[in-house]
Measured scan of single mutants.
Amino acid sequence: QKPVSAYALFFRDTQAAIKGQNPNATFGEVSKIVASMWDSLGEEQKQVYKRKTEAAKKEYLKALAAYR
C-alpha cells in the first residue's frame, strides 16, 4: 500500500478528537476544521508528519524493490 501524505497522517490523528468535540459535524465540516488546524500548524510540527511520510515512503520503495 502506498504511503499517505503528511496531511493525511495529521488528518487521521486529529479527526477522532474533532468528531468527539463536534459529534453532529458532517465529514465535510470536520475536514474544514482539520484543514484549518493544519494550516495554522507550525513548520516544526508539520515536519514530524513529513518525516513519518518519508520513512513510510522509503519502506514502501524497499518492499516494492524486493517484490520485483
Rank of each mutant, 00 (worst) to 15 (best):
K57I: 03
A8Q: 14
I18R: 01
A16Q: 09
V4L: 13
T53Q: 12
E43D: 08
T14M: 13
K32I: 04
I18L: 04
S36A: 12
Y60F: 13
Y60M: 12
M37H: 06
G42F: 00
K2C: 03
S31K: 14
E43F: 06
W38Q: 03
N24T: 13
N24V: 02
I33A: 09
M37A: 10
A8F: 05
K57W: 04
K62V: 03
K32C: 05
A6P: 13
A56D: 11
K58L: 08
I33P: 00
P23V: 01
I18P: 00
T53N: 09
A63K: 15
Q15H: 10
A55Q: 12
E43N: 04
Q21I: 04
E29M: 02
L61R: 12
E59L: 04
R68K: 14
V4H: 07
V4Y: 06
T14R: 11
A66P: 15
F10V: 00
F11W: 08
G42C: 13
R51I: 07
A16D: 13
K57F: 06
K32G: 05
S36M: 09
Q15I: 13
M37D: 03
N24D: 11
Q1P: 04
E54R: 07
W38C: 01
S40T: 14
Q15P: 00
G20Q: 15
E59K: 12
Y7C: 02
F10I: 00
T26D: 13
Y7W: 03
A55M: 11
V4M: 15
P23I: 03
G20L: 14
S40C: 04
D13M: 02
Q47Y: 13
Q21T: 12
K32S: 09
R12D: 03
G20C: 09
G42H: 10
T53L: 10
A25K: 08
D39W: 07
A16L: 07
A66R: 13
L41T: 05
E54W: 05
Q45Y: 04
Q15A: 03
K57L: 04
A63Q: 14
Q15R: 05
E59Q: 07
V30T: 04
F11K: 07
Q15L: 09
A65Y: 03
Y60V: 10
I33H: 05
T53W: 08
A56H: 03
V48A: 11
Q47F: 03
A6L: 04
G42K: 11
T53F: 15
Y7V: 02
F10D: 01
A55C: 06
S31G: 06
Q45A: 08
P3A: 07
S31W: 01
Q45N: 06
R51P: 06
V30Q: 05
P3N: 08
Q21A: 11
K2V: 07
L61Y: 10
D39F: 08
A8S: 12
S40P: 00
F10M: 01
A63L: 04
K58Q: 13
A17K: 15
R12S: 09
K2W: 01
S5P: 03
A55R: 10
R68P: 15
F11R: 08
A55V: 13
G28Y: 03
S36C: 05
L41G: 03
A65M: 13
M37L: 07
R51D: 14
A35G: 09
K62Y: 04
A35E: 12
I33C: 05
Q1Y: 14
A8N: 08
D13Y: 02
G28N: 14
V4S: 09
A56K: 15
R12H: 13
S31D: 09
E29A: 05
Q15W: 07
E54M: 08
Q21P: 01
R51T: 13
S40H: 10
S36W: 02
L9I: 15
K62S: 10
A63V: 07
Q47L: 07
A65Q: 12
A63R: 14
Q15C: 07
V30A: 00
K62L: 04
G42M: 02
N24W: 03
L9W: 07
A63C: 09
L9H: 04
Y60A: 13
K58P: 09
Y7F: 04
E44S: 09
Q45E: 14
E43W: 04
T26E: 08
E44I: 02
D13T: 06
K32H: 05
Q45T: 09
K58A: 12
T53S: 14
Y60P: 11
K32F: 03
E44T: 10
K19E: 06
Y67T: 15
G20R: 14
I33Q: 09
N24P: 01
A17C: 05
A6R: 01
K62P: 08
G28M: 07
K57T: 10
S36I: 07
A63M: 07
F27W: 09
V34F: 00
E44F: 02
W38P: 00
D13L: 02
V4G: 12
E59D: 13
G20I: 12
A6H: 02
R12Q: 11
L41Y: 00
P3Q: 05
A35N: 06
T26Q: 07
F10W: 00
F10Q: 01
A25N: 02
T14P: 02
K32M: 07
K57C: 06
Q1T: 12
S5Y: 01
T53H: 14
L41Q: 01
L61E: 10
E43G: 04
P23W: 00
A17Q: 12
K19A: 11
Q21H: 07
A35F: 04
L61G: 13
G42N: 14
K2F: 10
T14W: 04
D39E: 12
L64D: 15
A25C: 04
A16I: 10
V34T: 03
D13I: 03
E29C: 02
Y67Q: 15
S36F: 06
Q47R: 11
G28H: 11
R68N: 15
L64W: 06
Q15F: 12
S5H: 01
K52W: 02
D39R: 12
K58S: 11
G20Y: 04
E44Q: 10
K62N: 10
R12L: 02
A55E: 13
E44A: 09
K62R: 12
T53V: 14
E29P: 01
N22P: 01
S36Q: 15
A8P: 03
A66T: 15
L41M: 14
D13S: 03
E43A: 10
A63P: 14
A65I: 04
M37R: 12
P23E: 02
V34K: 00
L9C: 09
K62H: 11
I18M: 03
K57Y: 05
R12N: 15
A63W: 07
F10N: 00
A16F: 08
A25H: 05
A65G: 13
A56L: 09
A17T: 13
S5W: 03
K58F: 09
Y67F: 09
R68S: 06
A55H: 12
K46Y: 02
S36N: 11
A55P: 08
L61W: 07
D13N: 03
E59P: 10
I33G: 04
E59R: 08
R12C: 03
L61T: 14
F27C: 07
R51H: 11
A25P: 00
G28T: 11
Q47N: 14
E43L: 09
A8W: 06
